[in-house]
């Protein structure tokens, strides 16, 4: 599915605003200055998206289902090691250990961080496009993203990849927000993009 330059630019600005709001929330929670890079976005078929990901990388993934304007699934993905740093940044030094895998408290903390980022992003997207997207409760898992996409989706589905890097005061943490939607819904998302230019004053 190809986007025109204008469509791509609108989508990118929507994601930029959404991700920035998520960063603001995260900074309140982490009590730290959190910057986010302008996100890179791509709109791909599921198989193309899978090809662009390393197959055997262990990811920390927070997953929520979407219903409403966009039905599908959304995954917030960190590399295994990075997720540990993120969790430790939140939990403080009391939990820093030499071990390199997230466990115990980190799983819980990651689930909440993911829930915050995903809720902030998705609600902003819905508000900017004057529609509604509801979310399920979050699920945390550790696995490789391409493997999960293969198991949970159809090849005809469309994937919206939003890549950004979080800069916390102590380190940079690259993360990807992945939204998997059916091709019809991807089409209707594109059709709704011009709504972004309508006066944005009230919630739907």
């Amino acid at each position: 599915m190809n986007l025109t330059e204008i469509q791509h630019d609108i989508l990118k600005e929507i994601m930029n605003i959404s991700v920035s709001k998520a960063a603001t929330q995260l900074s309140v929670l982490l009590n730290d200055k959190i910057q986010m890079e302008v996100p890179e976005i791509s709109f791909l078929t599921l198989s193309k998206a899978r090809e662009s990901m390393p197959e055997d990388e262990e990811n920390a993934i927070i997953y929520q289902e979407l219903t409403g304007m966009l039905s599908g699934r959304t995954y917030l993905v960190f590399q295994g090691k990075d997720s540990l740093f993120l969790a430790q940044a939140v939990l403080g030094d009391a939990f820093s250990r030499s071990n390199d895998k997230p466990q115990f408290y980190e799983h819980e903390a990651m689930m909440e961080i993911g829930n915050i980022v995903i809720s902030a992003c998705i609600s902003t997207i819905a508000n900017l496009l004057k529609d509604r997207i509801a979310l399920s409760t979050p699920v945390y898992m550790e696995d490789s993203l391409p493997r999960i996409l293969l198991a949970q989706s159809n090849d005809s589905d469309i994937v919206l990849l939003i890549r950004t890097t979080l800069h916390a005061s102590r380190r940079d943490i690259p993360g990807t927000l992945v939204m998997v939607i059916t091709s019809e819904l991807a089409g209707s998302l594109i059709n709704k993009l011009p709504r972004f230019f309508e006066l944005i004053e009230k919630r739907p």
């Binding site: 920035s20 709001k21 309140v28 910057q35 986010m36």
Partner: peptide
Amino acid sequence: FSANLQQG
């Protein structure tokens, strides 16, 4: 202009 209204 910013969507990022952090205190910093």
